[in-house]
Computed example of a mutant assay.
Amino acid sequence: MSKFSLTGRVALVTGGARGCGLAFAQGLAEAGADVAVFDMIDPVAEYHEISATLGVKTKFYKIDVTSNENLSEGFAAVKKDFDGKLDIVVACAGVNKNVEFLDTTIEEYEKLFAVNSKGVFFTAQLGAKAMIENGTKHGSIVLVASIASHMAIRSQRSSAYCGTKGSVRAMVAPIAAEMNKHGIRVNSVSPGYVRTEMTAPFPHLLESWKDEIMNGRVAEPDDIKGACVFLASDASRYCTGTDIRVDGGVTMW
Rank of each mutant, 00 (worst) to 15 (best):
M1S: 15
A11G: 14
L12A: 08
T14D: 03
A17G: 14
G19T: 03
C20L: 15
F24P: 00
A25S: 06
Q26S: 11
G27T: 04
A29T: 03
E30P: 00
A31F: 03
A33T: 12
V37Y: 07
V37P: 03
M40D: 04
D42G: 05
D42L: 13
V44P: 01
I50T: 07
I50S: 09
S51P: 05
A52W: 01
G55S: 11
K62I: 05
K62S: 14
V65P: 10
N68E: 15
F75H: 08
K79D: 12
F82A: 01
D83S: 14
D83G: 07
K85D: 05
L86E: 02
I88W: 06
V89R: 04
V89E: 02
V90K: 12
A91Q: 13
G94C: 09
V95R: 08
K97W: 02
K97F: 03
N98W: 00
V99T: 13
D103V: 07
T104G: 04
T104R: 02
T105Y: 00
L112W: 00
L112V: 01
F113S: 10
A114F: 01
N116R: 02
N116V: 02
F122N: 04
T123I: 12
G127K: 01
I132K: 15
E133C: 06
G135P: 00
T136G: 01
T136Q: 02
K137E: 13
H138Y: 10
I141M: 08
V142E: 07
L143T: 09
L143I: 14
A148D: 12
A148S: 15
A148H: 07
A152V: 09
R154P: 14
Q156R: 15
Q156G: 04
Y161G: 05
Y161E: 03
G163W: 06
K165Y: 03
G166K: 06
R169V: 13
M171E: 06
M171W: 06
A173Y: 10
A176C: 04
A177M: 14
G183C: 03
R185D: 11
V186M: 07
S188H: 05
S190P: 07
S190C: 14
S190N: 13
P191A: 08
Y193H: 14
L205A: 08
L205P: 05
W209P: 01
W209F: 13
N215F: 15
N215K: 12
R217I: 03
R217Q: 05
E220Q: 14
P221H: 07
P221Y: 08
P221E: 06
P221A: 09
D222Y: 10
K225Q: 11
A227F: 08
R237H: 10
C239D: 09
G241N: 08
R245F: 11
V246K: 04
D247E: 09
G248E: 00
